[in-house]
């Protein structure tokens, strides 16, 4: 096992002549919380999609625990322990919270194709599902359909669903996007809590969340890495300030 849990080498994605991401090199240290930040349209989400194979890179390679995963499909990547969340809330709206988590637990349970069994076949998973729901503060809402949850709780449910796969590396795409002030802190605490024993890469706009959570930060601009370092370094970097604030003479 190398020092880095997730590594990208020369990652490039072109959409019909437009370079969305160009030659991105990224190393995420095992056990750390690493942030990917940058102004709108910097290519953060594209980067994420490339790392999880939701998109196929035009060139470059992705390594998970030193193994080349560039050629794998996204479902296979998930099974190898790299699981992502989405920018827009990605729950299963017509399933209850319990079912949301349980269906994810089925991913490693070997029951998913059993159409002739009753749900008793997955009742063994209920305990773990309740445990995960409790961990994200949804313990008492196990039988509520996901669609009836508040926005912040949907994000919490999404994290519980992601945790169901016990991923080695979690990629969180703007976990606090669109959240009211009062929801942000619980989610930040939750991310800190679940980061124990895992590696997390996070795309985030809210810089106070980034500064409180992340050990290392990579700044993207126009699809390229602008700089990388700890929060203090990055936030004082003149290039970063220009990228965010806009240059005076621009």
């Amino acid at each position: 096992m190398g020092e880095y849990a997730l590594e990208a080498q020369g990652l490039t994605k072109t959409f019909g002549g437009f370079n969305a991401v160009t030659d991105v090199n990224l190393k995420v240290r095992r056990g750390s919380i690493h942030a990917l930040i940058g102004p709108n349209g910097a290519g953060k989400t594209t980067c994420f999609n490339l790392l999880t194979k939701t998109l196929t890179p035009t060139s470059g390679k992705v390594f998970l625990d030193g193994r080349d995963i560039t050629r794998l499909r996204s479902a296979q990547v998930a099974r190898q322990g790299l699981v992502r969340s989405f920018q827009i809330s990605a729950t299963f709206p017509h399933l209850t919270c319990l079912e949301n988590v349980r269906v994810a637990l089925q991913s490693n349970h070997g029951t998913a194709y059993k159409f002739w069994r009753s749900l008793k076949a997955v009742s063994a998973l209920n305990e773990r599902a309740h445990e995960l729901l409790g961990q994200v503060g949804l313990g008492h809402q196990a039988h509520t359909p996901a669609t009836e949850l508040s926005y912040g709780k949907k994000r919490a449910l999404e994290i519980a669903t992601t945790l169901a796969l016990d991923p080695k590396v979690m990629l969180l795409d703007e976990p606090t996007a669109g959240m009211g002030h009062e929801d942000i802190e619980p989610i930040t605490d939750l991310i800190r809590k679940v980061s124990d024993g895992r590696t997390i890469l996070i795309v985030e706009h809210n810089l106070s969340v980034v500064s409180s959570l992340c050990e290392r930060i990579t700044v993207l601009q126009h699809g390229e890495v602008l700089c990388e370092g700890a929060y203090a370094e990055v936030s004082n970097d003149p290039e970063v300030i220009t990228a965010y604030m806009g240059g005076i003479d621009e």
Partner: peptide, 15 residues
């Protein structure tokens, strides 16, 4: 039913 609700998410969960 989960696939019906959100296919992309199911794929990201390894299905």
């Amino acid at each position: 039913r989960a696939i019906r609700d959100n296919e992309g998410r199911m794929e990201s969960l390894g299905f």
